[in-house]
Design a protein around this nucleic acid. Structure first.
Length: 492
RNA sequence: UCCCCGAUAGCUCAAUGGUAGAGCGACCGGCUGUUAACCGGUAGGUUCUAGGUUCGAGUCCUAGUCGGGGAGCCA
C-alpha cells in the first residue's frame, strides 16, 4: 500500500524542510491579523497524542487561495493540508506545517451543537457520544494504549512459545459455572416449541407450561455466549503444552459497577506440566511485561494519563516494575486482617477463615498493608470452582481443605487476575463435581483429559479492561473499551 | 439486585414555592505568531417523563426512566 500523505506521528519525525501532506480532523483553530492574516489550525489524525499545527497564510509567498474558508474551520472539520515542515516560531511545538494549500474534506454542519466541541467534557457525557468521543485527547490515548496492549499480549505469549487458540464464542455446554449467561437461540421467543408428553397424540394442543424443546433449536440443544474459554483451552493445553486464548467474554450478570461489563475481553493462558507457583510467576511476568511495553511504546499517551487522569501514575507503574509481587497464602491473609482488626481497623464485613474476602479486605491488603500488587494463594475449597486442584491437608497450616487457586490483587482495582492449578486427578475431580451437584454427564470431554494422559496444568484469566484501568488510571471500565456493553447499555 | 445521590441552554452548573441565570462552546466584531488566549456583543430553554398538591411548581409529593458513587457477583 502506498499512501501519498504522511501520518502526523511521522510528520513530527520528518526533517525540517520536508514537503508534507497531512490529513486529519481539526482540533482547534485560531486566527490572527498579523503578517496580513494567518490561521493556526491544529490537525489530528489520531496517530499520536499531539495534533500538528498548520500555519495558513492569507498573504505573501505562502498565501492560500481559500483563506476565508480556512478561517471558518471549526473543531471536527476534516482537512487535507499540503505544505512544508518548518521549525515553529511560536512556543508549544517544535515543528509545524507551513501550509501551501488546504483542502476542506468535510465540514461540521452545526458547530454550535457539535457534541465534542473544544472544551472540557465529563466522561459520563462522552459515553453518550461514544462514536465521537475517540476524537478527544483522553479517548484517543485510551484507543492507542488499548491497541498497544493487545499487540503486547500476543507478543508476550508468542515469544514464550505459547500458541494462540481461538476458543468458541458460542458454547452449547451449560457447565462453565461462571455466572449468568446470554442465551443464543433461533427459536421463536413468542411461541417456542414445547416438549410434548410421551403419550401425546399427534396434533394435541401444546402445553404452554411444558419445558421449551431445545432439540429444535439451531444447535439442537441450549446454547449460550461463552463466559470463559478456559475449559476449551485446557484441551489444547493438553496437546500443545503452552496455549492462550484472548477473546470476548460475556456475563449476563446485573452488575452496575465501574469494574464490570457484560461484554469484556479476557486473556487466558494455560500451561501443561505446571503448578500454581509457575502459574503465579507467569502472571507476574505478564503484568510487568504489559506495564513495560506501554511505558516504552506510548510515552506520549502515558504522560497525558499521568498529568490529567491519575497524578503519580508513572511513578506507581515504575514501582510495579521494580518490586517483586508479594505472595501470600489466604490463611496468612486472614491472620493479617484479624491482626488489623485487633489494632482497631474497622471492616463492614467480618473476617473469618473459610469465607471469601470482601472488596474492602482485598483493598486493605493491596492498598494499605502491602501497598503493591499481592498474589493470594491457596483458598478454601468451598469458595472456589470445581476444577481447582485440591491441596494436601494442612497446606499453609490451614484449618480446612484448600485448593491451589490464586488471585492477583492490585491497588484501586482489586482482583485483576484469577487463576489456579487444575485438578488433574480424575477421582478427585469426580468427587468435586459430585459434591457441587454439577451435571457430570456434561463434563464428559473435560473428564476425558484426565482419562487419557493426564498431566498437572495451570492457568489464569486476566480481565483485559481491568488491565487497561490499572495501566492508564482510568476509573470507569466503560471508558477503556470502545463501545461498552452493560445493563441497559448497548447503544452504538 | 440493594443503599445513597443526581437530571435546568450544545456542555458544566446556579436559581427562599412567585419574571429562567452564569461560565465554557457557537456566532459577530476587536486585539494578538496564536496555542486552557484575551476584550466587547448576539443567539440559544416543553427545567428527564407521567401524574398529584398549590392562587402559583425548576423548586414540594408519588411512580417511572436514565446517569453517578458504594455493595454483591466477578475478570
Amino acid at each position: 500500500m502506498v499512501m501519498s500523505w504522511l501520518k502526523v506521528s511521522d510528520a513530527f519525525k520528518a526533517p525540517v524542510g520536508s514537503p508534507v501532506t497531512i490529513k486529519g480532523w481539526v482540533r482547534t483553530n485560531r486566527d490572527s491579523k498579523a503578517d496580513g492574516g494567518l490561521c493556526f489550525v491544529a490537525v489530528s489524525d489520531g496517530t499520536c497524542f499531539d495534533p500538528i499545527q498548520c500555519v495558513v497564510k492569507a498573504a505573501g509567498n505562502n498565501a492560500t487561495t481559500n483563506f476565508p474558508d480556512v478561517q471558518k474551520l471549526t473543531t471536527g472539520c476534516a482537512v487535507e493540508v499540503d505544505g512544508t515542515l518548518v521549525a515553529s516560531q511560536g512556543k508549544g511545538q517544535s515543528v509545524e506545517v507551513l501550509a501551501s494549500a488546504v483542502r476542506i474534506l468535510g465540514l461540521v454542519e452545526h458547530p454550535d451543537s457539535y457534541p465534542v466541541s473544544n472544551k472540557r467534557h465529563t466522561f459520563e457525557y462522552l459515553r453518550e457520544v461514544a462514536h465521537l468521543r475517540v476524537r478527544t485527547n483522553t479517548f484517543g490515548a485510551v484507543a492507542r494504549v488499548r491497541h498497544c496492549l493487545s499487540m503486547a499480549v500476543h507478543r508476550f505469549f508468542h515469544e514464550r512459545g505459547f500458541f494462540y487458540v481461538h476458543t468458541p464464542i458460542v458454547t452449547a455446554s451449560d457447565c462453565e459455572g461462571a455466572g449468568q449467561m446470554f442465551r443464543v437461540s433461533t427459536l421463536d421467543m413468542m411461541n417456542p416449541p414445547r416438549v410434548a408428553p410421551e403419550d401425546a397424540k399427534p396434533g394435541a394442543p401444546v402445553d404452554p407450561a411444558a419445558p421449551v424443546d431445545f432439540s429444535n433449536d439451531f444447535f439442537g440443544k441450549e446454547a449460550h455466549l461463552t463466559v470463559s474459554g478456559q475449559l476449551n483451552v485446557e484441551t489444547y493445553c493438553c496437546a500443545l503444552s503452552r496455549v492462550y486464548t484472548f477473546g470476548p467474554t460475556f456475563r449476563a450478570e446485573n452488575s452496575n459497577t465501574s469494574r464490570h461489563l457484560a461484554e469484556f475481553w479476557m486473556i487466558e493462558p494455560e500451561i501443561a506440566f505446571a503448578n500454581l507457583q509457575v502459574d503465579s510467576e507467569l502472571a507476574e511476568d505478564f503484568i510487568k511485561y504489559l506495564t513495560k511495553t506501554v511505558l516504552d511504546e506510548r510515552p506520549d499517551d502515558m504522560k497525558f494519563f499521568d498529568e490529567r487522569i491519575e497524578p503519580g501514575l508513572l511513578k506507581r507503574l515504575q514501582h510495579v516494575l521494580e518490586t517483586p509481587f508479594r505472595r501470600l497464602p489466604y490463611t496468612e491473609a486472614i491472620k493479617i486482617l484479624e491482626d488489623a482488626i485487633k489494632k482497631g481497623k474497622k471492616f463492614e464485613y467480618p473476617v473469618k477463615w473459610g469465607t471469601d474476602l470482601q472488596s474492602e479486605h482485598e483493598r486493605f491488603l493491596t492498598e494499605e498493608h502491602f501497598k503493591q500488587p499481592v498474589i493470594l494463594m491457596n483458598y478454601p475449597k468451598n469458595i472456589k470452582a470445581f476444577y481447582m486442584r485440591l491441596n494436601d491437608p494442612g497446606t499453609d497450616g490451614a484449618p480446612g481443605d484448600t485448593v491451589a487457586a490464586m488471585d492477583v490483587l492490585v491497588p484501586a482495582i482489586g482482583e485483576i487476575i484469577g487463576g489456579s492449578q487444575r485438578e488433574e486427578r480424575l477421582d478427585v475431580l469426580d468427587r468435586r463435581i459430585e459434591e457441587m451437584r454439577l451435571p457430570a454427564k456434561e463434563y464428559w470431554w473435560y473428564r476425558d483429559l484426565r482419562r487419557y494422559g493426564t498431566v498437572p496444568h495451570a492457568g489464569f484469566g486476566l480481565g483485559f479492561e481491568r488491565a487497561m484501568m490499572f495501566l492508564t488510571g482510568m476509573q470507569n471500565i466503560r471508558d477503556v473499551i470502545p463501545f461498552p456493553r452493560a445493563p441497559k447499555q448497548a447503544e452504538f
